[in-house]
Simulated assay, not measured.
Amino acid sequence: MQITVKFTDVYDGVESVHTDTVEVAPAAVGDETALREWADEVLFEHTGSGNFDHDHAGYFAEVVACGDQPDLIGETFEWI
């Protein structure tokens, strides 16, 4: 399915925001553990700039559009 996600990458306190539309497997809506595992498997790989020269980093994702699973819109995930 196609999903649009706003990604915010924070490196040493500096935010970098980008929005991407990606093809992913459907999510298990209604089961928080399965939803988190889904995000770890399919969304996390779209975070980050690939630059590992930082002391502190955090990655955030917010689903902003998903025609196939509108229940996902507004879901947020973080990896710190």
Rank of each mutant, 00 (worst) to 15 (best):
M1P: 04
M1L: 09
Q2R: 14
Q2A: 10
Q2D: 14
T4W: 03
T4V: 06
V5N: 00
V5P: 02
K6I: 12
K6S: 13
K6M: 09
F7I: 10
F7A: 01
F7Y: 15
F7G: 02
T8A: 00
V10P: 03
V10S: 12
Y11P: 06
Y11F: 08
Y11A: 10
D12I: 03
D12W: 04
D12P: 07
G13W: 03
G13C: 12
V14A: 11
V14T: 15
V14Y: 05
V14E: 12
S16Y: 13
S16R: 14
V17P: 08
V17Y: 05
V17K: 14
V17H: 09
V17A: 08
H18C: 14
H18K: 15
H18G: 12
T19K: 09
T19E: 13
T19S: 12
T19H: 03
D20Q: 14
D20G: 06
D20W: 02
E23K: 12
E23W: 03
E23R: 11
V24W: 01
V24N: 02
V24D: 02
V24Q: 03
A25E: 11
A25D: 06
A25N: 11
P26A: 15
P26L: 11
P26M: 13
A27F: 02
A28T: 13
A28G: 02
A28H: 10
A28R: 09
A28Q: 11
V29E: 08
G30P: 06
G30D: 08
G30W: 02
G30S: 10
G30I: 03
E32Q: 13
E32G: 07
E32F: 03
E32H: 04
T33C: 10
T33K: 13
T33R: 10
T33Y: 08
A34C: 05
R36P: 00
E37Q: 13
E37K: 15
E37A: 15
W38T: 00
W38Q: 05
A39F: 01
A39E: 01
V42L: 08
V42E: 13
V42D: 09
L43C: 07
L43Q: 06
L43F: 02
L43W: 03
L43T: 00
F44D: 01
F44H: 10
H46R: 07
H46E: 07
T47S: 13
T47F: 05
T47P: 06
S49T: 15
G50I: 09
G50W: 05
G50M: 05
G50K: 03
N51Y: 12
F52I: 04
D53V: 11
D53H: 12
D53N: 14
H54Y: 10
H54D: 11
H54S: 14
D55E: 14
H56W: 08
A57H: 04
G58D: 07
Y59A: 04
Y59T: 03
Y59P: 00
Y59D: 01
F60N: 04
A61I: 07
A61G: 09
E62M: 08
E62H: 01
E62N: 06
A65P: 00
A65R: 06
A65E: 12
C66L: 08
C66V: 06
G67T: 12
G67H: 11
D68Q: 13
Q69Y: 02
Q69N: 07
D71M: 10
D71N: 10
L72D: 00
L72V: 06
L72C: 07
I73K: 03
G74Y: 08
E75P: 00
E75C: 12
E75R: 07
E75W: 05
T76H: 01
T76S: 10
F77T: 05
E78Y: 09
W79Q: 03
I80T: 13
I80S: 14
